[in-house]
Amino acid sequence: MRVRFPLLHPRWLGTHLMAVLAALGCLGLGYWQYERAQEPDRSAITNPVEDLARATDIGALLEPGAYMPLDLANEAVRTSGVYDAENQLLSPALSPEGEEGYYVIVPLVTDDGAAVTVNRGWIPLDAAGADGAVPPVPDGEATVSGWLMPPQGEATRGYTAIVSEGQIARISSALLVNEWPYPLYEGYVTLAEQTPAETAGAASQLREIPPPDPPQEITWNIKNLSYAAQWVVFGIAVVVFWISLMRRELDERRAAREGGAGGTASPSAADGPQPSVAGATAD
């Protein structure tokens, strides 16, 4: 069967394949250079302990009831207030080793009447009902330093929809607002330091939560970024050249068809009468 469309001839199929592979190769190399351009700068890793010493007052970052931007996650913060020990809750959570247990959370009521959710630490599952497993919170004014964490979602490790009295399914202001009679700051603070310090008895099984992984800053490498841009330009140039080749092929074939049609036209009446065979014989 003869292929009538010129761009589907065998010689053009090879051209199409080479053009597609070249364009994809250029774009792939451009993406690779883009990835290399934003590799983490290992020298820019920060120290959580040093960050804690420069903690920011939570009131300077958030307002009660306001949305917490995700870029504030793991930010070192400080706040002061009075613990409401009567409203302490347990939230299902896994330890760093994967053991089942609970986070111990409590509202810290600030001077403006709003409350900051403080995650005091983690206790194992079998210690939840044991006396002395969780030491009492300090009386009076307390100053807390720690890391600001975003509200937990339903995909959080240790999350369960079934909880008992005195527990909360996850640490989220959307749930806690129904349990505590205070305006709440969104997110919660993982306790790192506290003044006055808690007095942990011999029976206490409250484990301090380790600090979050240190953030790694991204340093853009302009050289690799320029290489990425060059490869993208090369890929675009391949596509433009490919399209121009196909357009030229179609234009040439169209011109050839129009020229062939004009050269085979039949004689017309304007060319004058033609002598008949009978008249020639008579002469």
Rank of each mutant, 00 (worst) to 15 (best):
E252D: 13
P183D: 15
A197L: 00
P69Y: 10
D213K: 02
I162P: 13
V49E: 13
V277L: 14
A192C: 05
L175M: 08
H9Y: 09
V106I: 11
Y31C: 01
L108V: 09
P6D: 07
E100N: 06
E208A: 08
L175F: 06
A269Y: 14
A203F: 11
P92V: 02
A282M: 00
L62T: 06
M246Q: 12
A127R: 15
D213W: 01
M149A: 03
D57T: 05
L70A: 08
L175V: 03
D57V: 10
L29P: 06
Y159F: 13
R36V: 09
V238N: 06
K223C: 00
E86R: 09
A255I: 03
P96N: 08
P212M: 06
D213Y: 03
E99T: 02
D57I: 06
S172E: 03
G30W: 11
G121F: 15
Q38T: 13
Y103M: 00
L89N: 13
N178Y: 14
G235D: 09
V277F: 14
V116D: 13
V106K: 03
D126K: 06
L52S: 03
R120N: 01
F5I: 02
G153A: 08
E39N: 10
E141C: 01
F234M: 12
S276Y: 04
G101A: 04
G30I: 07
A282L: 03
D131P: 11
D84C: 03
M18T: 11
V109F: 15
